[in-house]
Amino acid sequence: MSGLLDHKKTAAEIVKLARSDDKVSVKFLLTEIFQDFIEFHGDRVYGDDPAIIGGLAYLNQQPVTVISTNKGQTTKEKLASHFGCPEPAGYRKALRLAQQAAKFKRPVIFLVNTAGAYPGRSAEENGQGEAIAKNLYEFSKLPVPIVSIIYGEGGSGGALALACGDRVWMLENSTYSVLSPEGFAAILWKDSSRADQAAEILQLTPEKLLRQQVIEGIIPESHSKYRLVKAIKRVLLQEIDQLQQMTTDELLEKRRMRYRKF
């Protein structure tokens, strides 16, 4: 339980920690939180985006569909996944797998760490906006529990498209915002070097977001990644258990109200 209790970190420090290369990797999360993760590829339209990894796994004995952003470990992986910025194919893969989960009545878990949707020519041509829009639209009525964990950066619509379900938790050192502090500073002061100042104004830290009811809770980060994984697993089990007690109508009405209040 270090971190939360000792000195209060500034927003800029949390931004740095959220982007750190030491951040827990998606591979580690997938193998340590879940058993028997099996990856499925492709959006069934035109491609497979390595920035999103998805598939089936057991969470204890519970079958779930897991979908995670992937920043990549090696340089090659990082380039292929645009440093974890999904293309439309990634969002469409996420939707396909989530709808499959709904068919077989298993919960969907999103693990989110992305600076945002990939801003590129191909992404525009293939309908980046439409892909995100469709996820928001369909997930609002997906008839199974959806839990998202933001474990690094939660960048704008690209993150929201994977964090628009029933419950959203954040790791202690993670961020969630409408745009990056650099982008914000560049627009506001025409000076991206004032990002630290921008980070404060943006109110992108878990603590601020919890107070504003944008998220349900904060998971403390300890020095041990195994302990972190345990904490994440506990949250997932507890949330899914609660959500599964509801009828589908109740679940969807609560989900609607979760966003209606903003």
Partner: peptide, 8 residues
Amino acid sequence: GIFSLMQM
């Protein structure tokens, strides 16, 4: 900020 994002 984030409240704008939630409108989506």
